[in-house]
Design a protein around this nucleic acid. Sequence first.
DNA 1: CGTTGCACTTAGTACGTATTAG
DNA 2: CTAATACGTACTAAGTGCAACG
Length: 795
Amino acid sequence: MSITLKDDSSSEDEGVMLKRVYKDAKHSKKNSKRVKNDLPNGNSDSDEDEDIIHAARKKQKREKKGKKPKTEDGEKVLKEIHNNGDEKGTNTSEPNGRKKVKKEKTPKVRKIKKEEAKYDDEDEDTMLAKIASQSAVVKSPSWASSVDFREPSEDFKWWENQDNEDDTIKWKTLKHNGVIFPPAYEPLPAHVKLYYDGKPVDLPPQAEEVAGFFAAMLESDHVKIPTFQKNFLRDFLAVLKENGGTRNGVEIKAFDKLDFTKIFEYFQVQKEQKKQLSPQEKKQLRLEKEEFEKPYKFCEIDGRLEQVGNFRIEPPGLFRGRGAHPKNGKLKRRVYPEDVVLNLDKEASIPEPPKGHKWGEIRHDDTVQWLSMWRENISNSFKYVRFAANSTLKGMSDFRKFEKARMLKDHIDKVRTDYKSKMKSPKTLDRQMAVATYLIDVFALRAGGEKSDDEADTVGCCSLRYEHVTLRPPNTVVFDFLGKDSIRFYQEVEVDTQVFKNLKIFKRPPSGPGHQLFDRLDPSILNKHLQNYMPGLTAKVFRTYNASKTMQDQLDLIPNQGTVAEKILKYNAANRTVAILCNHQRTVTKGHATSVQKASERIEELEWQKVRYKRAILQLDKSQQKKNPKYFKEIDDLSKEEELTIHKRIIEREREKYKRKFERENDKRKFDKEDPIPDSQLLEWLGKVDDLEKLYERESKTGKVELRESLQDVDKLKLQIEKLEKRITNSAVQLKDKEDNSTVALGTSKINYIDPRLSVAFCKKFDVPIEKVFTKTLRDKFKWAIESADENWKF
DNA sequence: CGTTGCACTTAGTACGTATTAG
DNA sequence: CTAATACGTACTAAGTGCAACG
């Protein structure tokens, strides 16, 4: 992003485009690398061919394996597997083919303490759960009756009873009500149509739906991308053909002749209507929706009631990949119950599939923590329905993640001395490993696994290529590449001399653009090596470790003084340091540039007001000048032109303000069927502004300040000036903060990288309410941390 | 032993609502 | 009180890593 953000003159849209152009340039250089893979379709230029071959290959693979039955009789097959599995006793007969360590359950007596709710949220949650259970009972879903609600699940505190046992078995019982499917497609009214070459097109509903997806996005940048248009058109035409083509004989060929505006406008109207609903109606709708969703929102795991994260099946639409994704614009097809696999315990009753449908498969896999799953058609991977972030399983793995990162503390010295010494190893692999580890440790790079051609061209450490690293002697390195989510990583940094030397060697011919920088390395080799230092150590642990470590160090620098607001500001500054380390970015918001400008104009105006008051002081008492010439210095610093600009701006704004006020008031009166305010009112208002303008004109002509009676006093003026100065500093600080934050996303590191116990300890020690740093959701997610860390906790 | 499948974490954006400045 | 802005959440894409596969 930073490519564009630095440039104030470039608009939002240009920014996006620039990013893409940048990407495309990289993409073309990639070819030399591809030779490595030497695919049968390596030189195929036609997307269609590619797709066909691709599909064929994938099919082949699936057939070879003879697994994953996707047909209706898949269920039968599975049932057999389950019935015979134990007798056969082979690992491969397990549902997902994974080896399972089936061990006898050691019934752990869980400490379920009844305790008074310490936090308000807790009550709320308990309530929620109870309501949910009640409604569930009413609707009598399969599992509800078996749950003992007298023991609210919220009292289960796994963190008070941590047994670091093997976690391959995720649950003993698992019951839920399945998933929510998106509503069926509702055809557009007959008069709303797609147009082709000026002619209305009669589409079969299936194709109309796809056209509608595009129409809905008409104002987004996505639809301007050629790839997006091409992919859309191909899939749209395919759906059209499948369903018998247009019904009035219009033949669609060229994208440019398609006109979606009528559909777009129809959607706009619909949206507007929805917005116009009265607050009560809106609330009613919301309540109905919540009521409907309740049974899906919760599930039962090991007898506890826990929340489900995403119980909604993703609706069909056009794929919006990040960056220059080759599949942008492709149709993401609708998912049917037949595509969906449910995971439940064997005793659980199976949720009723939607009428006329069957579930794709019912599974009983207790080694995974998903409730439901389906295969998606864009990249042929899986989508899962999982537990919510506040669930036990998620909490436990979060906890483990941070504990693992903390464990790295005890090994990091060894890792570091090791990679320093291996920088000079005669073995290339060792040196590559050393440099890569260094980059991951120092610059928080991701592992960087290999990617295929049908994904966006992004890289991480191991997949860095020649062109992503520029060397500037004596020891400066410029990184410039697109990382995860096609977010640009740009850094000019000084590195260890030995690192620099090694990079120089790695870039030596025959290496050139397109070549891998670390040609002997990939994440699995690197990770295998890292395991030597510490079990479970992988590349990503370094990010967690360094993020949390940085946060700890930053928090340690904050003095325990000042107001809560000041402490929060400092906490956020620490958070920002971490976000910058991890390169967590966000696009600047739509009105950022304008709002920054506005804010700085406001500051200028305040400065001017200050000068004005100072002049007034001198008018009242000339001797002040001698007493403190410095104090009045800034009067001369303000040029005539600057002052006039400010005058003009203020006057202009005042006029606008009154005009708007007038219009708005009249709109309202019209709506209420009242008489409009007379124009004379507006004129009166504007007259006031005219007077002000004249006043300013007089002032700048004579240099004499005209102030109201109450301010004809030196001390009062000084007080006013002091106030202004405060406001100015405040605004300036806020403005700077806003600027600094405009491209940095603080949330990602807070959610994923910073050990929450750090924040908890900070809050407890500094008397900052936890609500100020963790939102409600975050407090739920990090409940384990809030309840387990005290003010002395250290990472 | 490299490749692939699967399951999990990490990521930015869109959008509606709450908060704040004026 | 209104408009602008900030915040919070839902959504889903895009990574990582492990283990099975061939």
